[in-house]
Design a protein around this nucleic acid. Structure first.
Lengths: 237, 237
DNA sequence: ACCTGAACACCGTTCAAGT
DNA sequence: ACCTGAACACCGTTCAAGT
């Protein structure tokens, strides 16, 4: 970052980080299915084959993307790495941080959500040892026993996965056709004739309540976490 | 099903349903990335090009798979289409029904979870008008107002998506490399040196608690739903 | 009426060769 | 040291031709 960065043209030297960053931008612009080694090469003004000197395969590239996206959160000044004012504030800030990451990369986030897990203790979307450690350590420091911390971690990840994947998938692309044609019509009422409740609640369900939903659900999750802590407290840390 | 089914060999006539069924079996055996029009043709003892007479494209085939998998639930005798003994029992039975579907098709379920939603009122994994209508109608019949039913639907789908996708993705395949090599070693403790809490809770997090987790989380979801019903009740249906 | 062969425009990936 | 060209074994999809 300091020296050696004599970027005269846009042709800075190729390396893993540059490739992954370009891939993320590409996905955010053209969707996941559009990402091709050859097209990514074009974007970097290089033949596709040159990429293989820095990334062993397309699969490895996708794993790299997941890693980098999650690590972004470490640079977010609003995401703490330890509780400062109680575990609840800590958990809320973590949740908001991950949500910000998801919304910043709506087309890449499904990758974070659904690449195969490497281990049972790295549950999506909290897929990095750093953040899992941070979460567990924070809760234990605030009086959660071992069981309670583990249970809280499971509940937290399920909550995040469900909410964020839904939010992002309603907002836009995923794996799928390149052209997400959002036809102007509202799914002709004639085919909703047999579904009166859907018809009636349709507009209500179309309203974007995702932010409020997230906050409410998070609130209830923390009530559950309180119970977990108190129950486990009996058996002690 | 009654006549016209003179299947002498295994070469019954090609049609959309047969193709989709074969595709589901194929995915459950070889994983999603292994599904290819050409290989699916092989399995059906037909050239790949023949499939295009019944299915317009690979994308459409994937959509068909989602549809068929969800419809399986209609044949499940343990899944009611209206509340019989209160809304709570109704919701529990629906949840268990969808969980059974997910566990029956661990490799196809990610498709149900993450194909782009067609409309905001068809939230994964409850992706059929029939089931959305059934859910909304059941709750309204049990005294849920419009708002409450819509809120409950949102909370229910988020819950299902998070839990089931996690459960299925820990269990196995998804999009990704064909060979999910589960290396015998337990992720060498040396790399966990900086992550003491992860190391300590590792075995705890490896225990499969998904069934219990599902039940507990569902229980709390229903408490939330009770609140939704009572709050909305004030404004009435 | 239903399926096939041949072809097109793409893929990921390997490897010897260029500069 | 770093990238390219050419090639291989695959893809999805179209369409005229076969039976």
């Amino acid at each position: 970052m300091a020296k050696g960065d004599r970027s005269g043209g846009n042709a800075s030297r190729l390396n893993r980080a540059v490739i992954i960053a370009a891939a993320i931008d590409f996905i955010d612009e053209h969707g996941l299915p559009g990402l091709t080694m050859r097209r990514l090469g074009d974007r970097l003004e290089v033949e596709a084959m040159a990429l293989y000197h820095y990334v062993p395969s397309r699969e490895a590239l996708l794993d790299g993307i997941v890693e980098v996206i999650i690590d972004e959160m470490r640079d977010d000044p609003d995401v703490p790495d330890a509780p400062a004012d109680g575990w609840q504030e800590f958990v809320v800030k973590l949740a908001h941080g991950i949500r910000r990451v998801a919304l910043a990369h709506p087309s890449s986030f499904p990758l974070v959500a659904s690449r195969p897990a490497e281990a049972p203790w790295l549950r999506p979307p909290l897929r990095s040892l750093f953040w899992v450690e941070t979460f567990l350590d924070g809760l234990r420091a605030e009086g959660f026993g071992k069981e309670a911390a583990a249970d809280a971690y499971r509940a937290f990840t399920s909550f995040l996965l469900g909410h964020l994947l839904l939010e992002v998938s309603v907002r836009g692309a995923d794996i799928g056709p390149l052209d997400v044609v959002d036809d102007g019509e509202e799914a002709g009422p004639e085919e909703l004739a047999e579904y009166p409740n859907v018809r009636e609640l349709r507009s209500q369900l179309s309203v974007d309540r995702s932010q409020a939903e997230f906050e409410e659900s998070l609130e209830h999750l923390m009530e559950r976490m309180t119970l977990m802590r108190d129950e486990d407290g009996a058996f002690g840390p």
